[in-house]
């Protein structure tokens, strides 16, 4: 099996994850895109582990670690989403514009 097959699949999954993160309006669906990206990374790690025949199994071990971190991330992310839902009443990413710079500056034109 050519090595680039799993690598290309990994890239594909990552790109799809990016698309999901960029385009979804519901925060939970955005988090699903993030999960896809993390899985693509795992696939990459495991493929290289098999290719290098790593005695220390560094690729597989790091895949495990990434899974753990992903679990922690999804726990925190969902906690934030619930908090947002409680304060805003919905979790539409498009309507959360508190970061916008829409105040006119204090200095007036001369």
């Amino acid at each position: 099996m050519p090595l680039w097959w799993p690598l290309l699949l990994s890239s594909l999954l990552f790109a799809i994850g990016v698309y999901g993160v960029l385009v979804r309006r519901n925060a939970v669906l955005v988090l699903m895109g993030v999960e896809l990206m993390l899985n693509a990374v795992n696939l990459n790690l495991v493929a290289f582990d098999a290719y290098f025949r790593d005695v220390l199994h560094g690729g597989q071990t790091f895949a495990l670690f990434v899974i753990v971190i992903a679990a922690a991330e999804i726990g925190l992310g969902l906690a934030i989403v619930l908090l947002v839902f409680r304060t805003h009443g919905q979790i539409d990413v498009d309507t959360m514009r508190e970061l916008a710079d829409r105040e006119e500056p204090a200095v007036a034109e001369r």
Partner: peptide, 17 residues
């Protein structure tokens, strides 16, 4: 996808697993 795919295909073209 283009950046990542080009990289992996160009970098590991012909490498057998």
């Amino acid at each position: 996808l283009a950046v990542l795919g080009t990289t992996v295909v160009a970098g590991f073209h012909g490498v057998e697993l």
